[in-house]
Design a protein around this nucleic acid. Structure first.
Length: 415
RNA sequence: GGACAGGUGGCGGAGUGGUCGAUCGCGUCGGUCUCGAAAACCGAAGUAGGUGCAAGCCUACCGUGGGUUCGAAUCCCACCCUGUCCGCCA
């Protein structure tokens, strides 16, 4: 959500910010609504003030037994105009502002799409495995990955994992969660997987992206634990966070994948349901940039310890998400697919979500909006894919990374 | 799902139609005292919007939304949430 006062004071800067996202100028239309809104407020409040004044006088007159005077004042109140259309103008303003994306951090490069993203760092070199197979080929050959069964049970974009692969998914989730809590100091949270509309609005899923969510009754299935974790501070004035608040959760995530029909239909790269370890930080404004780097490193360490080849991408203007001011994507190399694929996305949202959910802290006399950050630490389903394709053996078995062996009870998955 | 009881400022808890944004306690902040701290004492402090160079002034907010009234934290209606008991149930 944008600060109307910022737009009022800096209309050109605001429009230039939108232009970086290939959006047309909005400040003119916004300020017109704002002017009408303030005019309506002033008229309504003036009338209200006069009425309050007369009401007090009536009370006084009645107390002193001056019935005639009271009656005269009542008649005067009855003649007062009571129109208050400020709420309509406010609603119109909110509708416009809540649908506009966050302004970008100055360090974000220009560009229209992912081709303009910038490689920041690369760990390892893409392996060329002779006759490398993709994860679904490996999984089906092992008899532990069943897309047909999932389709019968639920439909497309689901998978059934069995035996050692089901256990591998569980091992990945447990190990990642342990790492983020024990080593990196995040507080483990077990949040609801369904949230109400207010919560979904707070992080920016609503109103613009409702079609991406699954709905159950009047609730929404979370598309990421970012939604409940970030909203933990919604509507709160917290103590000044000299050290960032850090939350993590391992949850299933549910996405309708509306609009991605035909993309990544084979395998379990793009599913309606997947596990993810999410990282969320709540910081002071001056701390969010450093926290963004720290959070990204917390995700990167996971990939390194799993023996994966990865690179950090700084997303360009056109590829940065709605609520984010700056995003790093982590991509892993998938030897079977011979491609880099996103496995984590770490975003600094500045105060954009904080404004939507009214999350602040107190500093001296001021109430200040917090900064919110979120990142995958990391996506479990995609980590499973990466481990399978990276550590596949010529006989079709999968070598288990050392860090996962205690959770697996074995160093290899075989038929 | 049914029956009761509740939802008030960071927390606890008063307040049942007329200067109530709201008594009080705890906690917080500033000060006095002290070498320093504690205790004690004194004082300050809600959120948002509008307006003004500013001091300030105005408006709204007592779960949410309506209603009654000149006037609502207080009365009425609906809904949401919490607690207790009952029913059902992993």
């Amino acid at each position: 959500m944008h600060d109307i006062r910022f737009i009022r004071a800096n209309p050109e800067a605001f429009d230039q910010g939108l232009a970086r996202r290939s959006m047309s100028a909005q400040s003119g239309a916004i300020l017109t609504i704002d002017a009408a809104r303030r005019d309506a407020i002033q008229r309504a409040e003036a009338a209200q003030s006069r009425r309050n004044e007369l009401s007090r006088a009536i009370g006084m007159a009645m107390k002193q037994g001056q019935a005639d005077e009271a009656a005269r004042l009542k008649a005067e109140v009855a003649g007062l105009s009571t129109v208050d259309d400020s709420a309509q103008h406010q609603a119109a303003l909110d509708a416009v502002l809540s649908a506009l994306p966050n302004l970008l951090d100055p360090s974000v490069p220009d560009g229209a799409d992912e081709t303009a993203n910038v490689v920041q760092h690369q760990h390892g070199t893409p392996a060329t495995i002779p006759d490398a197979r993709q994860h679904f080929e490996l999984g089906e050959a092992l008899g532990l990955m069943d897309f047909e069964a999932a389709a019968r049970l639920a439909g497309s974009r689901f998978v059934v994992l069995k035996g050692a692969l089901a256990r591998l998914e569980r091992a990945l989730g447990q190990w990642m969660l342990n790492t983020q809590t024990i080593q990196n100091g995040y507080t483990e949270v077990a949040p609801p997987y369904l949230v109400n509309a207010t919560t979904a609005f707070g992080t920016g899923q609503l109103p613009k992206f409702e079609e991406d969510l699954f709905k159950a009754g009047d609730k929404y299935l979370i598309p990421t634990a970012e939604v409940p974790l970030t909203n933990l501070v919604a509507d709160h004035i917290i103590p000044e966070p000299s050290e960032p608040l850090r939350f993590t959760a391992l949850t299933p995530c549910f996405r309708s994948e509306a609009g991605s029909a035909g993309r990544d239909t084979r395998g379990m790269l793009r599913q309606h349901q997947f596990q993810k370890v999410e990282l969320v930080s709540i910081t002071r404004p001056e701390d969010s940039a450093a926290e963004h780097e720290r959070m990204t490193r917390c995700a990167e360490a996971i990939l390194t310890e799993l023996g994966l080849t990865w690179r950090r991408m700084l997303l360009c203007a056109g590829d940065t998400g709605f609520a984010s001011a700056k995003t790093y994507d982590l991509e892993v190399w998938l030897p079977g697919q011979q491609a880099w694929r996103e496995i984590s996305s770490c975003s600094n949202c500045h105060d954009f979500q904080a404004r939507r959910m009214n999350a602040r802290f107190k500093r001296n006399k001021d109430t200040v909006f917090v900064h919110t950050l979120n990142g995958s630490g990391v996506a479990v389903g995609r980590a499973l894919i990466a481990v399978m394709e990276t550590h596949q053996q010529s006989d079709g078995s999968i070598a288990i990374p050392a860090v996962l062996q205690p959770f697996m009870g074995t160093d290899r998955i075989t038929r």
